[in-house]
Design a protein around this nucleic acid. Structure first.
Length: 596
DNA sequence: GCCGTTTTCGGCCCGACTGTTTTCAGTCG
């Protein structure tokens, strides 16, 4: 059997970067080079898989991918190779593309190294380069020197072949890491404020490098304080306004320092996204203005206008303030100019969690929660929730007969009723009796109808046979959604960030059914799920489908993950009205009882 | 090679930093 070649966003992005490098060496038009750079960066930051986008015939929708590159990529996905890309790359030594992985080495240096050291093969290229460095051969090359040699040696040795070689961090991890650095920075009396930048500030589900800005009256001191952060392993650069370090954990952190009067411009500039800023810059240019991290320059007078904060910046451009989560150049600039931005859902709008697992002994074949219902309720009260839904996995049908299953579900029903009696009196929180039910491969639900009757609502989801094809999977899910008690489809694509791609579904069909039958699609807040993804949320919202932001907690502490789901919802342009667990108890109760 | 509320041609962001230089090229974001 022929093995299918796997294309990931990362591998496609690398390929485009290599083509860009090849064009640079060949002295191609610089705009053609940057076009490939842009396409590569764009693909690397996609929030869905490029293969899926190709499936839907939407490659040209990717910013920076036009007819030509889309055509080559199409050939690549259809046949496993692109004759055009291959011909661009073939005249150059394959080793140089390995060298490109080293931070600080670009196309010209990589090419020079390969040529002068006569390292041509890809195999052992880095190893051979390391040997050459140790022999002092690199410093002999014209234009290179001791420092370059040292940098290469350190990079190769530490496998700090960064430049995106390591996998992207989950947003949750990045927030934690950046939070610690920011806390440290704020200890300095020179530093007035410090904020995350880039994808971290835009709350993208995965984050590459961490960038941080500081407002200070002494940028040099701020950078030097940053470089003294105890977890720094190596200072990459330390200029008057910019610092860059590797932590001992291997993560790279960049710092940008600026005086307070320009802080708004800096924050805006480095929050990006790149596409958002390019679009803004174009609009500004038409008005005779040029944008930079220092401010807005009036071309006519040469005067630079400074902005303390971003609100003033956007106001000057005659736009509403655009929340960082929306800054992806997906229509937010036009909307902000017209005063048409959505009123994005906020964390405080979420007044209940409908997907949680307690340790109630339900004899499931999946995982139980770690905490008791009582402990979970205390946590929910602490979060000021108005309601909490327990949705343990269904009892294991293969090991129990129907009567045993019903018995367990009755026991759970009784417990919830009892909890409601006490909680209504003492805690002022409503408890709902949910259940997370497997949709079996044939589309049937894993518990009998008699069991469903005991529930306030059912969540359905897929936990097995994830490799069914799109058609079969769609039929399976649609069948699983058919019972009127089913109100939520949990983690709808089954993806795990950095771990596995989701299964494929015919979303047109799913959306239209969910809209008609008023079934909410879940935004699962678990840090490595974040499923639906932001782009799918946007499509769901536009299709008029309801959403539910849930934590899928298997322990009390997991209930804090809910903010991660809120970020995804915001990135998907979702408003409070789209989210069922922002509704009042009464409205939600009616929703559960409705039989659309 | 991409892109379009001055659209199918003629533009395309730009500054900081490092290393190797002695005025600048290469890399990065």
């Amino acid at each position: 059997m022929k093995k299918e070649k796997v294309f990931t966003n990362k591998s496609v992005s690398d390929l485009l970067n290599n083509v860009s490098a090849a064009l640079t060496i060949k002295g191609a038009n610089q705009f053609r080079v940057t076009a490939y750079d842009r396409a590569a960066a764009s693909v690397a930051h996609l929030s869905s898989e490029i293969k899926d986008i190709w499936d839907e015939n939407k490659l040209s929708d990717i910013p920076g991918v036009g007819g030509s590159i889309a055509g080559h990529l199409d050939e690549l996905f259809r046949t496993g190779k692109s004759s055009h890309f291959e011909s661009e790359l073939k005249s150059l030594p394959p080793a140089m593309f390995e060298f490109l992985k080293i931070s600080g080495i670009g196309p010209k240096t990589a090419f020079k190294l390969a040529l002068k050291l006569a390292i041509f093969d890809k195999k052992y290229a880095l190893k051979k380069l390391e040997v050459a460095c140790k022999k002092g051969k690199v410093r002999e090359i014209e234009g290179l020197g001791k420092e370059t040699e040292k940098n290469i040696l350190e990079s190769v040795k530490q496998e700090n072949l960064s430049k995106n070689d390591s996998q992207r961090m989950l947003l949750f991890e990045a927030e934690k890491l950046a939070g610690e650095v920011i806390d440290y920075l704020k200890e300095s009396k020179e530093i007035i404020s410090a904020d995350p930048l880039g994808s971290l500030r835009r709350k993208v589900s995965t984050v590459g490098d961490i960038d941080i800005s500081v407002s200070t009256n002494n940028t040099k001191k701020a950078v030097s304080w940053f470089c003294k952060y105890p977890k720094v392993k190596k200072v990459i650069k330390a200029g008057d306004n910019v610092g860059s370090v590797y932590l001992s954990s291997g993560h790279q952190i960049d710092l940008y320092a600026i005086e307070p009067k320009s802080y708004g411009s800096l924050l805006q500039h480095f929050t990006g996204s790149k596409q958002h800023n390019i679009h803004l810059r174009k609009i500004a240019l038409e008005k005779g203005l040029s944008l930079s991290e220092h401010g807005i320059k009036e071309e006519k007078t040469g005067k630079i206008l400074h902005f303390y904060n971003e609100k003033a910046f956007y106001r000057f451009l005659k736009m509403d303030y655009i929340p960082p989560e929306l800054r992806e150049d997906r229509g937010e600039i036009a909307a902000a100019s017209k005063g048409d931005l959505p009123a994005l859902v906020e964390r405080k709008d979420i007044v209940g969690d409908l997907h949680t697992h307690s340790n109630f002994e339900i004899k499931t074949s999946h995982d139980l929660g770690a905490n008791s219902p009582k402990e979970m309720i205390d946590k929910a009260v602490g979060l000021k929730y108005q309601y909490l839904g327990f949705s343990e996995h269904n009892p294991a049908v293969s090991r129990l007969n129907e009567e045993e299953v019903i018995l367990i579900l009755k026991k759970k029903r009784n417990l919830i009723d009892k909890l409601n009696y006490t909680s209504a009196n003492k805690l002022n929180i409503r408890i709902f009796n949910g259940l997370e039910i497997d949709i079996r491969p044939d589309g049937r639900l894993a518990i009998p109808d008699r069991g469903l009757k005991l529930l306030d609502y059912a969540i359905v989801s897929i936990h097995s046979s994830m490799r069914l094809n799109k058609d079969k999977m769609t039929k399976r899910v649609i069948s699983g959604l058919s019972h009127p008690k089913v109100k939520i489809l949990a983690h709808p694509t089954g993806r795990m960030l950095n771990h596995r791609e989701g299964y494929e579904l015919d979303w047109k069909k799913i959306f239209s059914l969910c809209k008609k039958r008023k079934i909410a699609l879940e935004i699962n807040s678990y840090p490595d799920r974040l499923d639906l993804s932001d782009t799918m949320v946007r499509e769901a919202v536009e299709a008029g489908v309801l959403l539910s932001i849930n934590s899928d907690s298997h322990a009390c502490s997991h209930m804090d993950f809910i903010s991660q789901g809120v970020f995804v919802a915001r990135r998907g342009w979702a408003e409070r009205k789209n989210i069922i667990n922002s509704w009042s108890v009464e409205k939600l109760e009616n929703f559960f009882k409705s039989q659309a």
